[in-house]
Design a protein around this nucleic acid. Structure first.
Lengths: 215, 215
DNA sequence: CGTGGTGTTGATTACTTTCAAGATGTGTGG
DNA sequence: CCACACATCTTGAAAGTAATCAACACCACG
């Protein structure tokens, strides 16, 4: 991973937030932490015990196989919460994809936070199970379509969506290689389903078609 | 699905239970419900609000795509808990794989059960994320190896394991076809890694080899 | 002892990966 | 501000893996 790099997409914090972020008890509020592109937030095996909320930017959560194969289990955009896994140590790596601001919430040892944590756990569970269906039973074009529909929804359902992550990240999220991701983008473009405004900015021309592909 | 059929594997309830089942407040205890092989426990869209514990037998949890492709997100064996998804309605189907006894726990509207439910949600989340890595980044033999290692662990780590489910179920769990599952079993058998005692009963001859394959 | 369902094996096809080269884009330094 | 350099992305050709199609074997049950 390279050192401090100005993110190419710093518009993330300004993008619409369809699902207003959860708010937590002010007493728990911690100062905003800044992570440059590629910076690690926590690593597998590290002590857990806090959870995080993305203020701006984007985060990837992943695991590695012994030979280096990587599976990204989730991306987290502005307003979203992550990092609580239940155990004493983390089972995943979390990294800032680009310049990212993150608020940290401590999980007080004695305090009962089940009420706050249960919805977070359940949202994560639902997301993971949705993702399982995609990885287990959908082909390359369906996977990319599902990904784009999801990203569009999380950015307010607008036609134009920003992809804060690289093709490599998308591939590792969808269980595909970067080449396959690239080829599918090209196919969708040729079909007139999407337009590639720039590498990381996509316009959805035929939302229905995309939606149908992803089902 | 076929009607009432005596399960071929009714030994499930007698198999060792390495992880003793959670116990819940007796006031919540409900009578034991019996489901014959293939019987539905709940369906997508149905009202939720209870959770379930397998007493004996086995359960599959799955979703369907519009064209009938099926992804099994989890199997639940004796002692394990399932069915709590957080929402008002179920997003999955749950079916008994063979003759199965299930205890139902009501989630009282007012009562605060976050303490009980959070560990369940987190266990499900961990399982799902483990599964994501398998589906996203492992090939057929690695997937089957991971599945067998998991089943062995959940049955007490013994050499001999019972597979309560069909090849079709295993395929739909691992994102493979039945033919591929069958071929991988044959390959593992020829390598001397496993022995097929019967269709649904397997002996692990080289546990280390299997473990290594699954990583 | 047949019959239907389940599982195995073989041949072929289809899709994705791998390997390779070239194009595009971004950041740097002149 | 432009030119260069490195990283990222795209495209092409070949190879590999799993899916599909098809036939047969096995098993449980009536």
């Amino acid at each position: 991973m390279h050192a401090y790099t100005t993110s190419r997409i710093e518009a993330q914090s300004r993008s619409p937030q369809p699902n207003p972020p959860e708010t937590f008890h002010p007493a728990l509020l911690q100062p905003l932490n800044f992570f440059p592109a590629g910076a690690g937030i926590y690593a597998q095996g590290e002590k857990a015990g806090v959870f995080y909320q993305v203020e701006f930017g984007a985060v990837r959560i992943y695991r590695l196989l012994a030979d280096g194969r990587r599976q990204i289990s989730a991306f987290h955009l502005a307003g979203e919460t992550f990092g609580f896994e239940g155990g004493a140590t983390h089972h995943f790596f979390a990294e800032a994809i680009n310049a990212t601001g993150i608020r940290v919430f401590r999980i007080a040892a004695g305090a009962d936070m089940s009420h706050q944590l249960l919805p977070l756990a359940l949202k994560g569970l639902t997301r993971a199970q949705e993702h399982l269906l995609v990885l287990g039973r959908q082909n390359a074009i369906e996977r990319v379509a599902a990904f784009l529909v999801d990203m569009a929804e999380r950015q307010g359902g607008l036609r134009k969506i920003e992809l804060p992550m690289s093709r490599m990240d998308i591939g590792d999220y969808l269980g595909l290689t970067i080449e396959t991701v690239s080829r599918v983008f090209t196919r969708l473009k040729k079909k007139g389903v999407i337009r590639l405004i720039s590498l990381r900015s996509i316009e959805i021309a035929k939302h229905d078609a995309l939606q149908n592909m992803s089902e």
